[in-house]
Amino acid sequence: MLKVENIDVYYGAIHAIRNVSFEVNEGEIVTLIGANGAGKSTILKTVSGILTPKTGTVNFMDKKLNGTPSYMVTRMGLSHVPEGRRIFQQLSVEENLEMGGFTRNKDEIPALIEHVYDKFPRLRERHTQIAGTLSGGEQQMLAIGRALMSKPHLMMLDEPSMGLAPILVEQIFEIIKELNESGVTILLVEQNANMALKIADRGYVLESGKIVLSGTGAELMASDAVKKAYLGG
C-alpha cells in the first residue's frame, strides 16, 4: 500500500533521513521506533507531503507522491495524525471533526461524525466544547477521530501516547488495534517501543536517520539490540 524507496531528506544543510526504505502492506500495523531525533516524524512528514525528499520515491496505492502537496495526499486516502495532536484549539469538538471531513461530501458528514462519536463517546458528550479545553487524552481521541473523518485507507500516527497517563496509553493502543481490525492500515511512530511492538505486525528501528533493523513485532521484541536500547534491558 505504501512503499518508500531510498529516500533522503534534508532540513536545509542537515541530512535528516539517509537512504530509508520501508513498506506498509494493506491491513498491517507497522511501527517505526527509535530515539528522539532519529527521524521518525521527518519520515511521516515526507510521506504526507509536508516535506519533499531530495532523492528516492514515496509510492502510495501505486501512485508516486513526491512533491504532491499534503492536502492532495489527504484526498488520496492517507491521513496523518501529527505529533502533539495539533487539534484546532479554538474550534469546537464538532468543528474539528468537520474539518477532518473537509474532503468528504457534505451529506456524508453527519454519519461520519456519528461513527466517531460511537467510537469515542466522550467526544459526543463534549461536542460543543472548545477543543483547547479538553484533557490530553480527550485531545488525542479527537485527533484520531478527526483523522478518521476523511475515511483513510492508511492512517499514520505520530507519538499518540505522548504525554498521556499509562492507563490512557493502553486505551489509545486498544483503539489503534480496533481501527486496524475495522480495516484501516496503520503506520505508527512511537517512542514507547514496548507498546508499539506488542500490537505491530512488523517494525523498523531507526537510528540517526537510518533504518538499522527490521522484522516482525515479536522478532524485534526479542532482539538484544532493541531490548538494550528501547526496552530498558
Binding site: Y71, S79, F88, M99, F102
Partner: peptide, 10 residues
C-alpha cells in the same frame, strides 16, 4: 490556527 494541520485535513 495551524496551517500545517489544516493542510493535513485536505
Amino acid at each position: 490556527e495551524d496551517k500545517e494541520a489544516a493542510e493535513l485535513m485536505g
